[in-house]
Simulated assay, not measured.
Amino acid sequence: MPIKFKTLPRKNPQDMVAPEKFYAAAVSNGETDMEALAEMIAYQSTLTDTDCYAVLRSLEHNIINELKQGRIVKLGSLGNFQVSISSEGKETPEEVSAANVTKCRIIFRPGKKLRHLMGNLSYLKAS
């Protein structure tokens, strides 16, 4: 099934007086929550949807705890999660402290199967 997209105008942030250009932007086709995933997994296995949901919640909890510890969480061919930080620049290494951290984020690096998926998608302009 193709990924739908719509057309959006955007200004050039480096030249605000330049005319807008139009770009494709993905349109979501709904959502799938953990309950639905648990139900799908249960249908494909011998586990109940309650058991699958409990495992997914446990996975979520453990990923969060491992990221809090500064660990990279590797989920096989799905990909890796890692915490990244940004800080203010200082003149010397001694001046850098935790107080200089300005932002943190979670980086997701897709694994081989997801990278392969990205190369094989098709697209359809939404009407």
Score class of each variant (00 low, 15 high):
residue 1 M to R: 06
residue 4 K to D: 12
residue 5 F to E: 02
residue 7 T to I: 15
residue 7 T to S: 10
residue 7 T to V: 15
residue 8 L to S: 12
residue 9 P to I: 04
residue 9 P to V: 03
residue 13 P to R: 06
residue 17 V to E: 08
residue 18 A to I: 01
residue 20 E to V: 10
residue 22 F to G: 06
residue 23 Y to A: 05
residue 23 Y to M: 02
residue 28 S to E: 10
residue 28 S to K: 12
residue 29 N to P: 05
residue 31 E to A: 09
residue 32 T to M: 15
residue 33 D to K: 08
residue 34 M to V: 05
residue 35 E to D: 08
residue 38 A to G: 09
residue 41 I to V: 15
residue 41 I to K: 08
residue 45 S to C: 05
residue 45 S to R: 03
residue 46 T to G: 13
residue 47 L to N: 10
residue 52 C to T: 05
residue 56 L to G: 03
residue 57 R to S: 12
residue 59 L to H: 00
residue 60 E to C: 13
residue 61 H to S: 14
residue 63 I to M: 03
residue 66 E to R: 02
residue 69 Q to D: 06
residue 75 L to V: 00
residue 77 S to K: 08
residue 78 L to R: 04
residue 79 G to S: 06
residue 80 N to E: 11
residue 82 Q to N: 09
residue 83 V to P: 00
residue 86 S to W: 14
residue 88 E to R: 11
residue 89 G to P: 07
residue 89 G to V: 09
residue 92 T to A: 03
residue 93 P to C: 04
residue 94 E to G: 14
residue 95 E to M: 15
residue 96 V to E: 08
residue 98 A to E: 07
residue 99 A to G: 06
residue 99 A to W: 10
residue 102 T to A: 08
residue 112 K to I: 08
residue 112 K to H: 12
residue 113 K to Q: 12
residue 116 H to N: 08
residue 117 L to T: 09
residue 118 M to R: 04
residue 118 M to S: 10
residue 119 G to T: 01
residue 119 G to P: 01
residue 120 N to Q: 04
residue 120 N to V: 02
residue 124 L to W: 06
residue 125 K to S: 09
residue 126 A to W: 06
residue 127 S to Q: 14
